[in-house]
């Protein structure tokens, strides 16, 4: 464990908690893409299948359980508890355009053709594009509440910190995970445009971020 990965995991946890609290306290999921949250729940489900078969550390196990629980709780709030506030009309991204290529690629590119490895690879590739429906929804509505932008900022920051973690681990222990690194770089690039808007707009203290 290194400071970059710890900061990344904390940033990821903060993002998930920000969103969950926003929905719970405002009792509304307006402006939130339920599809992205479903995809994130699928990412954690397919990635953490080794939760009961492999023990790495208490931290690893606890964080996996927390991420799974919070992501399912978020999906529950959106599609069950506050479903009448779910903006399905604007959450219109065709997720099959993400799932088909990701499934295809994970059958093409993986470390081993075993169910666990292919599902893990699927979760890595899926995570890179899972935010697309949310970013698409923001471009469609033309704006995002500032709390939603904070969610996206910490979510984007988490994988950027993981890149620093991979650089660190490569130089200190020769660790290299090509699939995770390539996918993580692509994922972070998707946030660059948003990061620019976030820094130039939201940090100026505007309540809403309106896209050009």
């Amino acid at each position: 464990m290194n400071v970059f990965r710890l900061a990344g995991d904390v940033s990821h946890l903060v993002a998930i908690i920000i969103l969950l609290l926003k929905i719970w306290r405002s009792r509304s999921c307006a402006g939130i893409s339920g599809k992205s949250q479903l995809l994130f729940a699928l990412v954690f489900t397919t990635r953490y299948l080794d939760l009961f078969t492999v023990y790495i550390s208490a931290y690893n196990t606890i964080m996996k359980v927390v991420f799974l629980a919070l992501s399912y709780a978020t999906v529950y709030l959106i599609y069950m508890r506050f479903r009448n506030t779910y903006d399905s009309e604007n959450d219109s991204f065709r997720v099959e355009f993400l799932l088909v290529p990701v499934i295809g690629l994970s059958f093409l590119e993986h470390y081993a053709f075993t169910p666990m490895e292919v599902l893990w690879t699927f979760s890595i590739f899926l995570e890179a594009v899972a935010i697309m429906p949310q970013l698409f929804m923001i471009t469609k509505t033309g704006e995002a509440e500032s709390i939603t932008t904070h969610y996206l900022f910490f979510l984007g920051l988490y994988r950027a910190l993981y890149i620093a973690n991979w650089v660190w681990r490569y130089h200190t222990e020769g660790f290299f995970d090509q699939i995770a690194v390539v996918s993580g770089v692509v994922q972070t690039i998707f946030y660059c445009d948003f990061f620019y808007l976030y820094v130039t707009k939201v940090v100026q203290g505007r309540s809403k971020m309106s896209l050009p």
């Binding site: 690893n60 991420f67 290299f176 995970d177």
Partner: peptide
């Protein structure tokens, strides 16, 4: 070398 087989990350 494409990877060091170590799934210890979240």
């Amino acid at each position: 070398r494409t990877h060091t087989q170590k799934k210890d990350e979240l």
